[in-house]
């Protein structure tokens, strides 16, 4: 896991991007300060999920408004598709991101 900074680096109901060899990873922070990480690519047409509006535990993609569940990476409602998940955790005040996708790791 890598140290990517502190919780306060990410705005509440917002996201920041981490550039990695695997591509961009979006790290989200919800209203209640839960943190999630997903590949920054919408399963629809690749929209940057980090730029969407975050509400509850979901994000609305900025390109065509699919809503992606932050915990599972799955598109909600009638849409189908899944964004890759990454493990992220808050330890000793720092955020740690796993660089291998969760599905693969699990």
């Amino acid at each position: 896991m890598i140290d990517i900074g502190t919780l306060s680096d990410i705005p509440r109901q917002g996201a920041r991007v981490v550039k990695t060899a695997q591509g961009d990873i979006a790290v989200f922070r919800t209203l209640d300060d839960t943190v999630f990480a997903l590949e920054d690519r919408c399963p629809h047409k690749g929209g940057p999920l980090s730029q969407g509006i975050i509400h509850g535990k979901g994000v609305a993609c900025p390109l065509h408004s699919w809503v992606i569940d932050l915990a599972s990476g799955e598109a909600q409602g009638p849409d189908h598709g899944c964004a890759k998940r990454f493990a992220v955790e808050l330890r000793d005040g720092r955020l740690w991101l796993a660089l291998s996708a969760a599905q693969e790791a699990a």
Binding site: I2, I4, G5, P11, G14, V17, V18, V27
Partner: peptide, 10 residues
Amino acid sequence: AQPFTSLQPA
């Protein structure tokens, strides 16, 4: 301008 930059891994 912060939201425009990426998080830098330590």
